[in-house]
Amino acid sequence: MTYFIGPILSIALIAIIVTQLMRKRLRERHALWWAIGAITTLFLSIFPGILLNLSSWLGFVAPLNLVLILGLALMLLVNLQHSAELTDLENKVRTLAEEIAELKLEDSIGKVNVSDFPESN
């Protein structure tokens, strides 16, 4: 029975990623690393022999350690990517805030009339 838990969980994860992508709740560039993780897990859970060979070849005493390290590395990478994207977003928000202040200031001194823009009608 335990043999099926790994594949079932991996397939569930892949299904969640695909549905989120379809609903546009997840952009593909954010999904990439999660998809790589899910497919690797699926692969290794169906063919555990590969994991055993790989871990002993790399010198791991317990194959599970290799899984844990790979998982941790994946989490770190995704987290780092999120921090980078957050910085990017903060910069964009900052620029927008400055532009809004400029528009309001110009509006108050009558240079540009914000109500002239067709969008605001």
């Binding site: 805030a97 400055e98 809004i100 202040a101 400029e102 309001k104 200031l105 001194i109």
Partner: peptide, 10 residues
């Protein structure tokens, strides 16, 4: 003074 107001603290 002329005043420009940022919508939040940056």
């Amino acid at each position: 003074a002329q005043v420009a107001q940022l919508p939040f603290n940056i």
